[in-house]
Amino acid sequence: MHADPAVEVTGLVKRYGDKTAVDGLDLTVRRGAITAVLGPNGAGKTTTIETCEGYRRPDAGTVRVLGLDPVADARQLRPRVGVMLQSGGVYAGARAVEMLRHTARLHADPLDVDTLVERLGLDSCGRTSYRRLSGGQQQRLALAMAVVGRPELVFLDEPTAGLDPQARRATWDLVRDLRRDGVSVVVTTHHMDEAEQLADRVAIVDRGRVIAEGSPEELCRDGAESSLHFEGPAGLDLGSLLKVLPDGSSVAEPRPGTYRIEAPLDPQLLATVTAWCASSGVMPEKLTVQRRSLEDVFLDLTGRDLRS
């Protein structure tokens, strides 16, 4: 295992005309891990990934992939890096298996094509040409093409966009197996649960910069207030509850009879709340602790408004 990172991006800037797509982005991708690049549409994820793949030249900053320059050292780098584009990349008239077999032929020591075909369920594509495959089949073929050359590092740009739950699981399982065997994986997504379930490290990108980075657990814990919920009779006197809670807590009744308490979560808090319920003669139903999900973190960081 190498100590140096698989990808090191420092101060990356990329502009298209007067629009700045990436604005001083820093990102480190560890070897042998799954790194998710998470962000809203237009955040600069694809531009960043495509710069790492050697498709774009940085306007400023440096990009090192496996210690090499993706543009200047492209020749050495290409066989070592697997690429799954967000869409396309296959001859319209090609059949899935023959396209994969052709891609394998460009590599010195590829995976066994038949095994990979079976694993990703591409055998069902038969003689259908690429343009008539379903979106999910096209995605799985692109994934297979990215890994068939046995790369050290794989870039997957939204690999599960539009997949049904089964195909999504199959993709995740394959990505986990890549990690098991020492392949470094970078995956862009805007599915929070995907990042949460799959990634060892998550980088949240917004407006061309990384605004948070860490393991999913770290991100969910950082500055996170968990909340306590219970149901009871409507219209309880929340003022008296707030008095017994620690400073800075908040209490709300979002719907009649449903209560939400935001406060640093510890056993004492539970004891305080249940004691208050007992003294008020209230039976707290459905008492639950809700931890912040990555989605909450993401929305807190990037805002809840829809962007045009």
Binding site: V81, V147, R150, D181, G182, V183
Partner: peptide, 17 residues
């Protein structure tokens, strides 16, 4: 079980061509 252990490399250029 398939191993995905990295074994990268380009095919000989004549074969690719």
């Amino acid at each position: 079980m398939t191993s995905y252990s990295p074994a990268p490399g380009a095919a000989p250029v004549g074969r690719m061509l």
